[in-house]
Design a protein around this nucleic acid. Structure first.
Length: 404
RNA sequence: GGGGAGAUACCAAAGCGGCCAACUGGGGCAGACUGUAAAUCUGUUGUCUUACGACUUCGUAGGUUCGAAUCCUGCUCUCCCCA
């Protein structure tokens, strides 16, 4: 296929990118690629520890996709070997290493999800266990001799942990080397990663140089801030929007991000055309409410299609704005005439983690039946056959109580 | 190898024999206000119990005591200093 002119490619590549080190090398590589009609090898390493992908992961995956669309060759590395070490990046404590079986299973699930973003028909998938796993101890020692302790602790998370008197296990130093060795093995032109990966990516560049391979260009994408507006998006902070999430939740969660993030999200996790971005930035400031709805729509559409996005918007208007009961509310059957405690109903529905919490919710006015706040902790109810009541717990948990 | 310090709830951090289910801050949850935004105010945040109260919890296993997060001993883990 014919490649786009270098300038046009660059513009697409630079979207949302924090840093390209060094950008001149990328220009050179692109020029040569166009001239020789030869795709660049783009490397992205993924850690198969947590297989649930969310929009945070999508940032760098989307960048990968953009390279694919530009005609370049995408290589996804499953960090089967490195996962057994545990990437220290961003961890304040050492990660538990995974077994080979877990890795295989997680990798499978990862790829399944990633195909919502990547073009898997044109994707090369490799496992770094294939080459790292067979290295001998002497190979490893030679590898370690290529860098120094001072360089290692110069890395941000290490120096922080070091200064905070937190433990750093020796094996964690090997992680960047292992990742760098991947680049030596693949001889890739570009490696993608989050800004937190900068150090690791640069190690790859250095190791390639040492092995007389043309060094890779490191391209860093920002870490997407989660829906809470402060920490990076992560499952463990529960501030994430999963790419597998149902349209309604996806839409709703997208709306719950702080206003300041609207533009960033448009830039990083949607496919709105480059030329529309300036207009969006303006709208995000002048009319954040609607801009955010546009965003929620765009995100939902990306993963579920136009119809579902429309449905999610209607659903939102219906339930939140007009305060109607969502149609997915679970039904809770109650035998006609039977006396049931409200406490038990909520517990059965898993709407609260303990009876103590339920009582607290009731005391604070967080529970209502048919729009009427429940004030009595010990409330018991009975339903006639066919009778229905709507139970609401907290902000957005609904159930339909149905006499049967 | 030698010496010293430490391990408390989601996180940080007080408490150092009974008044401790454990101060305080952050986070979370709920209410008011709103745009499922922010800011603000209020309440709440171990389990069971309508409640009184009961039970489990302060790295881990034992011990001392009427009584332990607090004292003693073993163990595990971490940090610092020296070599």
């Amino acid at each position: 296929m014919a490649f786009l002119p270098v300038e046009e490619q660059l513009e697409i590549i630079k979207r949302g990118t924090v840093e390209i080190v060094p950008v001149e090398d990328l220009v050179e590589k692109l020029k040569r690629s166009v001239k020789e009609n030869k795709p660049l090898k783009i490397k992205l390493g993924v850690d198969p520890t947590r297989p649930d992908l969310h929009l945070g992961h999508s940032v760098v995956l989307r960048k990968m996709r953009q390279f694919q669309d530009l005609g370049h060759h995408a290589i996804l590395i499953i960090g089967g070997f490195t996962a057994m070490i545990g990437d220290p990046t961003g961890q304040n404590t050492t990660r538990p290493p995974l077994t080979e079986e877990e890795v295989a299973e997680n990798a499978k699930s990862y790829i399944e999800q990633a195909q919502k973003i990547l073009d898997t028909t044109k994707l090369e998938i490799v496992n770094n266990n294939d080459w790292l796993g067979s290295m001998s101890f002497i190979d490893v020692i030679r590898l370690t001799s290529k860098t120094t302790v001072a360089r290692m602790i110069e890395r941000d998370d290490f120096s922080k942990r070091f200064n905070n008197n937190e433990p750093i296990s020796l094996h964690e130093f090997l992680y960047p080397l292992a990742q760098g060795q991947d680049s030596v093995h693949l001889e890739n032109d570009v490696e993608l990663g989050g800004t937190d990966q900068k150090f690791n990516l640069l190690v790859g560049r250095q190791l390639q140089k040492d092995s007389d391979i043309e060094p890779q260009v490191c391209l860093m994408m920002p870490l997407l801030v989660g829906t809470d507006g402060s920490a990076k998006m992560s499952k463990s902070y529960d501030n994430y929007i999963g790419i597998d999430e149902n349209p309604n939740d996806m839409y709703g969660k997208s709306l719950s991000i702080p206003d300041e993030l609207i533009y960033k999200y448009f830039e990083l996790v949607t496919d709105v055309p480059l030329e529309e971005l300036p207009g969006i930035q303006e709208k995000a400031e002048s009319d954040p409410r609607n801009a955010k709805h546009d965003l929620a729509y765009a995100i939902t559409k990306l993963y579920h299609g136009e119809e579902a996005a429309k449905g999610a918007r209607e659903h939102f208007e219906q339930t939140v704005i007009n305060k109607q009961v969502p149609d997915y509310a679970p039904e809770y059957p109650i035998t006609a005439g039977e006396v049931v405690r409200i406490l038990d109903i909520i517990s059965d529905l898993n709407f609260s983690s303990s009876n103590g919490e339920t009582k607290r919710l009731i005391k604070q006015g967080g529970v209502s039946i048919d729009d009427e706040k429940v004030s009595d902790i010990g409330l018991e109810l009975t339903l006639e056959s066919g009778e229905e009541k709507v139970l609401k717990v907290g902000k957005r948990k609904y159930a339909v109580l149905k006499g049967a």
